[in-house]
């Protein structure tokens, strides 16, 4: 119920609630944006835009329609996709490789920067290839169930049940 209270305060333009929301969602949102754009600077700009939208449009969030997390996720994915489709971005990154969140995790655990490399590795170890694809499309790229089924040539129902197994595995490692 705490979460509901926080969102209500955000909708009333409470700056402290906004800061709290930022702390809760900014890293995850930055990760989503980065997985699409693969550019740290550009991702920061988009992150800023996304949180400005969260602030300005908070009143349009309706809990009857879905989760706040999902609402933020949609804003972030849409803003990132708009950006990578824009002309100036395309010109800048003609030789961009089409990699997904798994490649980012792998390259990070190789270089082992500030973040816990062992922590990253465990995601990679538990997720089988189909899980990686499902999570990449459904979560990071924002495909619908139907689009995912078509992309992976998988029956619609299988997408749902297979993904459930994948997320179960993910949960068993993060908790």
């Amino acid at each position: 119920m705490q979460q509901d209270q926080l969102i209500a305060e955000l909708q009333q333009k409470n700056e402290r609630a906004f800061e709290r929301i930022y702390q809760l969602y900014s890293v995850s949102t930055y990760g989503i944006i980065f997985s699409i754009t693969k550019d740290e600077k550009v991702s920061e700009e988009i992150l800023q835009d996304v949180f400005m939208k969260i602030w300005n449009n908070a009143s349009s969030y309706n809990p009857e329609k879905g989760r706040f997390f999902t609402w933020v996720l949609n804003i972030a994915r849409n803003a990132s996709i708009d950006k990578i489709r824009s002309k100036d971005f395309k010109n800048k990154r003609l030789n961009l490789k089409s990699d997904n969140f798994v490649d980012i995790l792998e390259s990070k655990s190789n270089t082992s920067g500030k973040l816990d490399a062992i922590g990253l590795q465990k995601y990679l170890d538990i997720l089988e290839p189909t899980c990686k694809k499902l999570i990449d499309l459904l979560f990071f790229k924002g495909f619908t169930q139907k689009e995912t089924a078509e992309e992976l040539a998988m029956p619609l129902g299988t997408v749902k049940t297979r993904n459930r197994v994948c997320i179960d595995k993910l949960r068993s490692t993060v908790i």
């Binding site: 990760g31 969140f101 920067g113 993060v174």
Partner: peptide, 14 residues
């Protein structure tokens, strides 16, 4: 769990 997964993809804490 999804929040943690996507956070781990972030290059750093912004």
């Amino acid at each position: 769990s999804l929040l943690k997964l996507s956070s781990s993809v972030a290059p750093y804490n912004p």
